[in-house]
Computed example of a mutant assay.
Amino acid sequence: MEQDQTATPGETDADSMAERSREPAFNLPAGLTGILLFLVAVHALRTYVLSVAADQELILNFAFLPARYTIPLADQGLVWLWTPVTYSFLHGSWEHLIFNIFWMVAFGAPVVRRIGLARLAIFWCLSAASAVALHVAFHWGEMVVVIGASGVVSGFMGAAARFVFSPSGRISRQFAHLNRRLSLTETLSNRSVLVFTGIWFLTNFLVASGIFSIGGAGTVAWEAHIGGFLFGILLFGLFDPRR
Rank of each mutant, 00 (worst) to 15 (best):
D55Y: 04
A44D: 00
Q174S: 01
P24T: 13
A14C: 04
H43G: 03
L36Y: 06
I233R: 08
R119D: 04
A44V: 04
E2M: 11
F107A: 01
P110L: 08
M1P: 11
I211A: 12
N100K: 12
E95H: 05
A25S: 11
L60S: 12
A224W: 04
M17K: 06
V152L: 07
V112F: 03
R242N: 01
G218T: 07
V52P: 04
R242T: 11
I71A: 01
W222P: 02
V145P: 03
R20Y: 08
D4I: 04
L28H: 12
E223R: 05
Q174I: 00
Q3A: 15
W94C: 02
L73M: 12
A109P: 02
F64Y: 15
L178N: 09
I98P: 00
R181H: 09
T33L: 14
A137L: 15
L238K: 10
R162P: 03
A54R: 07
N61D: 12
N100R: 05
G210H: 07
L134F: 02
E23Q: 15
L65R: 15
G228K: 07
F212G: 06
E186Q: 15
M104N: 10
H91N: 13
Q5G: 02
P241M: 01
V207S: 05
H135S: 06
E142W: 00
L178W: 04
A160M: 04
F156R: 00
D15Q: 08
A74R: 09
V136I: 15
V40Q: 06
F236A: 00
L184K: 03
L37R: 07
F201S: 05
T6R: 12
F107Q: 02
T12Y: 05
L182P: 03
D13V: 10
F236K: 08
A106S: 08
S209V: 10
R173A: 13
R243N: 13
L234T: 11
W94T: 06
V136E: 11
I59P: 05
A159H: 09
G215Y: 08
F89P: 05
H225A: 04
F138V: 11
F26C: 07
R68K: 11
L202T: 13
D13E: 12
A121V: 15
T86M: 09
F165W: 02
W80K: 07
S21D: 15
D15L: 02
